[in-house]
């Protein structure tokens, strides 16, 4: 490993990171749309929660990366951060096979020494499929929090118009955090859904366009839903990316449901997918509304970096949505 300089990101690395990213993630992908510098800057320079990037450099090129997107969370009513592992990569010319702790693990170990441990990021999580999970389990201590269930249903016949009372949000304001505070009273952990996060995550996202629907009561938000169509995890899917509605406001929930179903019909989506923690009332409510639960191949995994918490605790108390997955 002596030929590699393994170190934190420094200004100027971004083009090298992008070059390797597009080689690694474009491998064998038909019609691959390369990541742009603007998309990288959005993810790693403008994230309101900061940046977590370590790289391996060889001969002036960035050849491996361990990176994560941090999120600010409420954890048992205290503020903390968690991170989603993203863009794990080793350039094909520098791989040693999956069974040996190669360059990725060498890059990840100092990453976790810097950002892991008590008082630092409380959780490092991801949604890998099995091969990536296996590497992480063997060398980095990944644990499965849940095997991820997905709700799905066909949009079915119906209106393509937004229901009366539903508006589109152009930009989130302080009302978002007040709505979030009303919703999170029963949650053990959740990403802080304030204007800074929501505008960064959805409104200013340079890669994806989202439909952001809301129901208002004067200046206050009664609820919002974020929706887009995509070809992943299934072709021609409508995705409920974020859902924030107090469970005791069924009227707002029904309006928002009809809004994204109308959008799904307009977009020609064949199925509408959503993800809810199993303890949430919405896990049941969406089934009552005709969604069927399916066991996906995705694993919600974590490296839990505080002895106060374990996978059981997270499974029973963490509010998360597809929004917590950067690729959606």
């Amino acid at each position: 490993m002596s030929e590699y300089d393994i170190r934190p990101y420094r200004a100027g690395d971004e083009q090298g990171i992008l070059d390797t990213f597009n080689v690694v993630f474009g491998e064998g992908v038909e019609n691959y749309a390369p990541r742009t510098l603007e998309e990288w800057r959005w993810a790693f320079e403008r994230n309101p929660a900061g940046r977590r990037v370590w790289v391996a450099e060889a001969d002036g090129a960035i050849v491996a990366q361990c990176a994560a997107l941090p999120y600010r969370v409420h954890l048992d009513d205290a503020r903390a951060t968690i991170t989603q592992g993203v863009d794990s990569m080793v350039h094909p010319d520098h791989r040693r096979g999956l069974r040996r702790p190669g360059l990725f693990v060498a890059t990840a170990q100092p990453f976790f020494r810097e950002f892991g441990g008590l008082g630092k990021d409380a959780l490092h999580y991801g949604w890998p499929v099995e091969p990536a999970w296996r590497i992480g389990r063997t060398f980095l201590g990944y644990e499965i929090i849940t095997t991820q269930n997905i709700h799905f249903r066909a949009p079915g016949p119906g209106s393509r118009d937004l229901p009366m009372g539903v508006e589109r949000i152009e930009r989130f304001d302080d009302a978002a955090e007040r709505l979030y505070d009303r919703c999170r009273t029963q949650w053990g952990m959740s990403v802080v859904r304030d204007a800074a996060y929501l505008n960064w995550r959805f409104i200013d996202n340079p890669r994806y366009d989202y439909h952001v629907f809301c129901v208002r009561d004067g200046a206050e938000l009664r609820g919002y839903a974020v929706f887009r169509t995509a070809d992943s995890p299934r072709p021609n899917s409508g995705l409920v990316v974020d859902w924030l509605v107090p469970p005791d406001d069924p009227e707002a929930a029904t309006l928002l449901r009809e809004a994204f179903l109308a959008q799904a019909r307009t977009d020609g989506a064949e199925a509408v997918l959503a993800v809810f923690p199993e303890w949430s009332p919405w896990f049941q409510r969406f089934q009552e509304w005709g969604w069927v639960v399916y066991g996906s191949d995705y694993l919600l995994i974590g490296i839990i970096q505080s002895p106060r918490y374990d996978t059981w605790w997270l499974r029973e108390r963490w509010w998360y949505q597809l929004a917590e997955l950067d690729a959606i």
Partner: peptide, 18 residues
């Protein structure tokens, strides 16, 4: 939950719980 029976039970009215 990947068996056909899981969907079949939902199809006759069962609901999935955690």
């Amino acid at each position: 939950n990947r068996a056909g029976e899981f969907g079949a039970f939902q199809g006759v009215g069962f609901r999935v719980h955690g």
